[in-house]
Write a protein that binds this DNA or RNA. Structure first.
Lengths: 206, 206
DNA sequence: AAAACTAGTGTTCAATTGAACACATCATGT
DNA sequence: ACATGATGTGTTCAATTGAACACTAGTTTT
């Protein structure tokens, strides 16, 4: 479907990509013109037209800076900025992202979540979820929502948040630590479920 | 440092964010105006000015669609784009990122690597590294460099890349699968080490 | 040699779009 | 009462910027 690009077209495409990364917005036709030293904006115009026709570029006709990389497509490369808490404070960490220790940026599609998902992250302490292959210092991504059975959740127990697996037994919710050294079942009533695990990031090797 | 936003300013900021996600470019002042039903573009202008002054928004003065999220800042978020391969082909996957299945964007600091690090990613097949708490469908991040003892490496064995732990025994390099069901030691000579694991991303819960 | 394609020049026009000013309203606090 | 600030209206201006046309030149294809 997408025909091969000519050398010049590839160069223009590369420049647009680089410009977007550096400035956060698409370049204007005249900026491309300047970069290549063209004497006329029309040269750029036709290269861009060609790129759009070959599907290598999506553009918003008539709109300023409407050059969009297919890769940078709506939704596609939507980065989400996830606040990382050492210990999740009591209450839901919704509004005040300021108090986060730091932030992690990941693109939504790689994490398999919606681009507008409200996530927060928690650094794992201890080995209570070793059986689920979650080790100390792992960073788990969580989203506040109602847990479903077998979800891994962050629950607030004794003022500290802990990772547990959310289970149903005889129709009643329980929390289960995936490590035989920990109490097997805790009644999940009266407990605050802060979030459901949707992903994990580990740095370094094991 | 950043003062509190008024209700209206927050609404405007939210709209800009939503618009960017949906269209890939920032909205134009008049588009914001329409969305809120303002009769005058100047209202928007002052909200945006206020947002910029409070640091909630970065803008390119005079440029069309120059409304930038601080999160989307240039330089600030040293994002690295990591090509994800299903199966790493023979040879080092350096230049041709084009053949990657997809890309994952993560900020370098969160991964604990240098911003100019050349990484690639590999989706884990099988359970050969279960002992290191790496499970099927995990995505491991690797960098091409000389392995050190106890590093987890991707090695090319029989035309397929496999994760193993790199060990020294009696001064000689060996590869070790962290799973008793797999052959314990393989001589690491004559094998191509494609990369050393520097991180891991898991989507979904366990 | 003719046709087709890529690349570029010079120029013009109009739509898009950011910026500015003066004035009005409402709430808040002094 | 008075000042202050947030919010909104109407209007005007100028810079930014995409789109178009006519013409030239080199290369490849037919």
């Amino acid at each position: 479907m997408s025909e091969a690009l000519t050398d010049r077209q590839q160069q223009v495409l590369d420049f647009i990509q680089a410009y977007q990364r550096e400035h956060g917005v698409a370049p204007v036709l005249r900026e491309i013109q300047q970069h290549f030293g063209f004497a006329s904006p029309f040269s750029v115009q036709r290269h861009v037209d060609a790129l759009a026709q070959k599907g290598a570029l999506h553009r918003l006709a008539g709109k300023a800076r409407g050059l969009l990389h297919p890769a940078h497509h709506p939704g596609d490369s939507a980065l989400i900025r996830i606040p990382l808490y050492g210990i999740i404070p009591a209450g839901l960490p919704t509004a005040n992202e300021q108090e986060a220790d730091s932030h992690i940026s990941v693109d939504a599609t790689s994490l398999g979540v919606r681009p507008d998902a409200k996530l927060f992250a928690l650094r794992v302490r201890g080995d209570s979820m070793l059986g689920a292959h979650i080790v100390e210092n792992d960073v788990v991504f969580l989203t506040p929502r109602e847990p479903r059975p077998r979800d891994i959740v962050a629950a607030l127990i004794d003022g500290e948040s802990t990772l547990k697996r959310f289970l149903l037994q005889r129709g009643r919710p329980f929390l289960h630590a995936e490590n035989p050294r920990y109490p097997d079942l805790l009644p999940a009533t009266e407990l605050i479920i802060q979030g459901v695990m949707v992903g994990l990031l580990r740095t370094g090797a094991a």
